[in-house]
């Protein structure tokens, strides 16, 4: 089992690398960085180990419309070095507002993110605007995670934005 490690390689100058792990592809057209590294699931193949640059941020994209997507993300987590969980992992879910998605699945994704103290982002993958805003968000986080923002570290941002288990907001009691 090959673990992906955050600090085993030196960072390149003025570059940042993001690993996007997604069960099925969505259009991530707006990545203005160099090509993001896409993987269907972890572990990554051993062959390119040498040439692969240091990965600064791992993003799991979970399509709530498919159960497998969530399972695949869960299964991939164990191939990450614990060091990544100090702020270099985040989850992004799509289709959260769809009527066809059982609420339990969103709750499961929340629980997963909350248990790992990672941020859980939401994306609208159906519209071009939604995709570009999702990309922008990931880039914002990536910049911090790769150390391109002075006075902010990955752990700092991740700690501020991490997911907490939701209250039952369906019934706010004001009594």
């Amino acid at each position: 089992m090959s673990l992906l490690r955050p600090f085993s390689k030196l960072p390149g100058l003025n570059t940042a690398n993001i690993l996007v792990s997604l069960f099925s592809l969505i259009k991530l057209t707006d990545f203005t960085l160099e090509t993001p590294r896409l993987a269907k699931s972890l572990p990554l193949p051993v062959e390119n180990e040498e040439t692969r640059p240091r990965i600064d941020l791992v993003v799991f994209i979970i399509h709530l419309s498919s159960e497998l997507s969530l399972q695949s993300a869960e299964a991939s987590l164990k191939y990450l070095d614990p060091g990544y969980f100090l702020g270099k992992v985040c989850f992004m879910v799509t289709n959260a507002r769809s009527a066809s998605v059982p609420t339990e699945r969103l709750d499961a994704a929340r629980k997963l993110a909350a248990s790992l103290q990672c941020p859980l982002l939401f994306a609208e993958d159906q519209t071009p605007n939604g995709v570009s805003s999702a990309t922008e968000k990931l880039l914002n986080i990536l910049k911090v995670a790769a150390g391109h923002v002075p006075m902010a570290t990955a752990l700092y941002l991740s700690n501020l934005t991490r997911c907490t288990l939701p209250p039952d907001i369906a019934q706010p009691s004001f009594d």
């Binding site: 419309s65 289709n95 507002r97 769809s98 066809s100 159906q126 519209t127």
Partner: peptide, 9 residues
């Protein structure tokens, strides 16, 4: 807006 039939398109 929260319970869209067509996934929100």
């Amino acid at each position: 807006f929260l319970f869209c039939g067509d996934g929100g398109t």
